[in-house]
Simulated assay, not measured.
Amino acid sequence: MFATLIEAALLSTMNARPADAHVKWFCAFDVAAQPRTLENVLCLDFELLLSLAAFSVLMACLAEPTALGHAATRAFDHVTMPLRLRTEEMIRAICGFFFISIGILGGFLLTPELKTTAPQVAVLQFAIAAGMLWRQTLPLSAAGIVVLFGIAVSNYGVFHLMDYPIFLGLAAYLALVGLQKNSLFGVSPIDVLRYATALTLMWASVEKWAYPQWSFPILIEHSIITLGFDSEFYMRAAGMVEFTLAFALLWTPLIRRCSAAILVVAFIAACFEFGKIDAVGHSAIIAALFAIACDDKAYARDRRVPWLAPIALCASLAATLLVYYLDHAVSFDTALL
């Protein structure tokens, strides 16, 4: 656990502002452009960073069942108990804030780069926010989120919206809570949201390797945050820590709670640097991360052999890279290697 915290402390310091501020909201980008080829992405620096990440995850898994891990779990339980008892209300309140805010700002569907000129979109956003007031109307709000997501897919394509499965996870959570369903195919509402959050961040991390040049203007403007590293290495490291922390959200209870807490700090730090657009745009994912950090439930399936963690991390990274590049190649006829 402490190895993970050491890695996260180093890399989230590097990652806090430009990496957690969604680059598409602040810089020019072209989703259809040729990404860095896998041959260029999988360089020596990438391999060294992955080795560090795998070692850190292994150390975290070894520490979790120890007395130190149990003490950390008790500390998490104590600190998060007030919010844990109000998780549903917290998510509903922040979602209400989010949809009211984007309705007032106007001109986009779910995030700032998903533009729209349709006036009825704001009406739907306000209606979604109003549905957060009562549990019985949460399924209607969930349906509204799915409608907005569908419009975005229609306008921008599936590949672009792969950045945002968090919204489908949020819709599923709200629908399940509103319908008083304890699970979706055996998965609890909070875990559905957790999986969607992890997938969102894992996909976003690949973007930092595929299109690091999108972030270079931000790094020039805020050069102090690179800690003296060159922009290329910084983006590789930022992507690796984001992927590792996202993967940790899928792992055992203490590891995923630690990861969620670290990510919350990083996202909130980014809001101070980038202002209201970043604060509003990331409010939903911050709510999800708070909920994950507070979740004290543990299941039999959470018991895993520690040495499986680095293998699973590498396998998840390879699968995400492959799906990202294959999806892009199919969508835009670009090269893989």
Rank of each mutant, 00 (worst) to 15 (best):
M90K: 05
L38F: 10
L62Y: 05
A270Y: 04
I102W: 06
A16R: 12
L11G: 00
A142T: 06
G103R: 11
Y234K: 08
F267T: 09
A315N: 08
L85I: 03
F126T: 01
T37W: 03
L133F: 05
T137S: 15
V305N: 04
T197E: 10
D30A: 14
V330K: 09
Q34L: 09
N15W: 06
G169A: 14
L50G: 02
L176T: 04
W214M: 10
L85H: 10
A248D: 02
L170E: 05
A16N: 06
A312G: 07
Y324S: 04
A329S: 14
F267D: 05
F274D: 00
R256W: 11
Y156L: 14
R194C: 03
A261K: 00
P217N: 15
L42W: 06
A172F: 03
A93W: 07
L336V: 14
P112M: 15
I262P: 00
A246E: 02
A279H: 01
T4N: 07
Y164G: 02
A293V: 04
V323W: 10
V23M: 07
A172P: 00
A329W: 06
F243P: 01
S215T: 14
A75Q: 12
A127K: 13
L50R: 12
Y324E: 01
F97T: 03
V305D: 03
A198M: 05
D191A: 10
I220V: 14
A3E: 08
F233E: 07
A248P: 00
F229E: 08
L179V: 00
G186V: 13
V305C: 07
M235Q: 09
A3Q: 08
Q213G: 07
L179A: 12
W134Q: 13
W307R: 12
T116Q: 06
V153K: 10
I255Y: 03
L227I: 04
L105D: 06
A284N: 09
F76T: 01
F108V: 09
R135F: 06
P35T: 15
V23Q: 05
Q180D: 15
L11I: 01
L133A: 15
V280A: 07
Y299N: 05
G144A: 13
T13C: 04
H282V: 07
